[in-house]
Amino acid sequence: MSDRKIRVVVAKPGLDGHDRGAKVIARALRDAGMEVIYTGLRQTVDQIVDTAIQEDVDAIGISILSGAHHHYFKAIIEGLAARDASDVIVFGGGVIPESEIPDLVKMGAGAIFGPGTPTSTCVKWLEGAVAEKRKAE
């Protein structure tokens, strides 16, 4: 099982148009051998959760630079729970003050990567987190 490719949705929730980070990370994950579905801009919570379930992904990576991170992390994590899909890992990045990260983690976010994080750090973390999750399955 463990050699099954990691599948991940990279999503841009809400109205934020900054997609540089999302696209760079999508490409880095793909270059690391993962199967990446990039949603594009202006995704609603329902659309993101639907995509994750339909595509049977291991994780959702969300990128938010608009300050709406609290709202969207909460809604996506709750949305997954409501669809009995809490096993999907949720992680993200963007312009998110460090002081607010503990809150997001408490909500269920796996990790938050701030500006300047090497893509290799995200890749490594995600590989570890998915391996952990699959062991539990």
Partner: peptide, 22 residues
């Protein structure tokens, strides 16, 4: 803010979480 930039009033469902943010 983004709802204003994208032509949604602050009470539109697409504006949730974004009002007054950027």
């Amino acid at each position: 803010d983004l709802p204003t930039q994208i032509g949604y009033d602050s009470d539109h469902h697409m504006a949730a979480g974004e009002v007054g943010k950027v």
